[in-house]
Simulated scan of single mutants.
Amino acid sequence: MRVDASINNDSPFSGLLRFWRSVHQVSQEELAYRTGSSARHLSRLENSHVSPSLEMVEAIAVALDMLERDSNHLLIAAGFRAQEKKADFRSADLKWLRKAMALTLRALDPHPTVLIDGSGDILMVNESWVAFYSRLIGEHHLACVTNHFDLLFSLHDATSGSKAYTDALCLILMSIQQDVLLTQDNAMQQRLTQLCATPGVPDDWARRAAQLDPMASFRVELQIDGSPERFFSVSQTVGAMGPTAYVSEPRLTINTLYPESAAKHAGADAQGYRHPLLPE
């Protein structure tokens, strides 16, 4: 089977439409029949002479039996918002993924590591994460924390207002703001409003974040037992592959803290701590 994956100057949507039609070996005439359109209109779409409507993109995705990830590629290429369905990390279908994440977090000990979803809700932690943050806010209080972003912003006082930490918070706000604009998620809009009201967060956080490289990893400084210590906060995305992995459920991120000093272990002496989200 020959698949049309050629690169040309046409629009991204046109190239994707030709590609998926060739993958499924569907002619323009057959696809026109399935979508209630015409072969002439499909030809104009594939040659970038016209732009598709949202209804047409959705009809093509259904007609070609495309999965959510690939349907979202088509939607975004046509200029529309991706349509993601929330995945339940606790569902029976994702038991294998929970096992894989538990093994990953254990392997990252003695470095504090947390697994979060696209809303920043905490799904799983390792023992070093519990030990590290228990030193900062107390084990009992930590057991009540459910959102990673809330935790990071609550620690702003513990950073003595360091520029590096404030910059990190500005970048988080920028990421959430753009996510809200792309997804129109009301719950995330409420969280954004709440986080922006955190004491010490600058009013010009958006302008400040716009001047920073939006990297998934950055340096932070925290007061540990009264002394400033620096860490590298490293985030890794877990989920679907491809250009729209950021909207493919489940949207998971693993965040790990590495001490800047190689001689130190942030989560040392992690034995004996308890937390409801420690893997069994």
Rank of each mutant, 00 (worst) to 15 (best):
Y133S: 10
V247E: 00
L181H: 08
K85I: 13
S162D: 11
E55D: 15
M215V: 07
V50L: 11
C144L: 11
R81D: 13
G138L: 04
F218C: 06
A107N: 12
W129P: 01
L142H: 05
H24G: 05
T253H: 04
R230S: 12
S38K: 12
A39M: 06
D88F: 05
Q177R: 15
G242C: 04
G138S: 04
Y33W: 15
E229K: 11
A92H: 15
V234M: 08
A131P: 02
A197W: 00
A131C: 07
E84G: 10
S43P: 12
S51D: 14
H73F: 04
T35S: 12
A245C: 04
G200C: 03
L151S: 00
I137H: 00
V3E: 03
N8D: 12
F232K: 14
T256M: 10
A107T: 12
S37K: 10
L252P: 09
R34C: 11
L108C: 11
I224P: 05
T253W: 11
T159L: 14
G200L: 00
I122A: 01
Q177C: 03
L152V: 01
Q223M: 09
F232N: 11
D179P: 02
N47K: 02
P112V: 13
P12Q: 07
L45S: 09
D225K: 12
F19Q: 14
S248Q: 14
V234H: 02
